[in-house]
Simulated assay, not measured.
Amino acid sequence: MAIRITSASTKAGVVVSGMVLSVFFGFGAVFIAGEVGAVTAALVVTVALVVFCGRTFRGEGEPVQQRRPAWKLSGGIVSSLVMGVIAVFYALALMFSAPSGPLGLSAAVVGPFYVLVAVAYFFSAFNLRRELKARRPA
């Protein structure tokens, strides 16, 4: 049976744990592969966290037995919008606060990645809204 997480406290715990792992792997990679390796390691953990959460978290009233469509990253419109806005702020912070040198180059690559994450969450919100409208009686 597939893992499904419905409790808000468990969801928060998974996200915080993922963020801690991202920092942990980033710091560990600094010693092995330098600054670029640290950014890459943190990015890989973040991608895994986004995919894991999108596939396993379920919103209130959302069926837990069925698989979600690939475009559906959250259980609701508001949560998709909030995650998209967070990704935009993270991308802006990376792109505009990046130092020069290898770390700056890494941040310049990672920043646009977070823009893509934001677009994916906004696309999810758009489709959820369209799906909700289609279910409403005319």
Rank of each mutant, 00 (worst) to 15 (best):
Y90F: 14
S79K: 08
P63C: 02
A48I: 07
G76D: 04
E60I: 08
E35A: 14
Y114N: 12
P63D: 04
S22I: 01
L49V: 12
A93S: 12
C53M: 11
V110T: 10
V15F: 10
M95E: 13
V119R: 06
G61K: 05
L43C: 08
G75P: 01
Q66A: 15
G101E: 11
R135G: 07
W71D: 03
T6F: 12
Y121W: 01
R68K: 10
T46K: 06
L92Y: 14
P112D: 06
G59C: 02
M83V: 11
V51K: 09
A108K: 10
S124K: 03
L132D: 14
M83W: 15
L81V: 11
Q65S: 15
R130N: 14
L81P: 00
F113W: 03
R130Y: 04
G34E: 00
V14T: 07
E60L: 12
F31G: 15
F126L: 12
L92V: 11
L116P: 00
G101Q: 11
A118H: 02
G26H: 06
A134D: 08
F126A: 14
A48D: 08
A42R: 09
V20I: 15
I3K: 02
M83E: 08
S74D: 05
E60K: 12
S17T: 04
N127W: 10
L94E: 06
G26S: 09
L21A: 13
A87T: 03
S9P: 00
F27H: 10
F52M: 04
V85L: 08
V20A: 13
P99V: 07
R129H: 15
A33E: 14
W71V: 03
A120V: 08
Q66C: 07
A70K: 12
V85T: 05
F25P: 00
A8C: 05
P112G: 03
E62L: 12
I32D: 09
V82Y: 05
I3S: 00
L128V: 07
S97V: 01
V78E: 12
I86G: 03
G101A: 05
F27A: 08
V20H: 04
A48S: 09
P63W: 04
F57T: 01
F31A: 12
P99D: 05
G104M: 06
V44N: 02
L81S: 02
T56N: 01
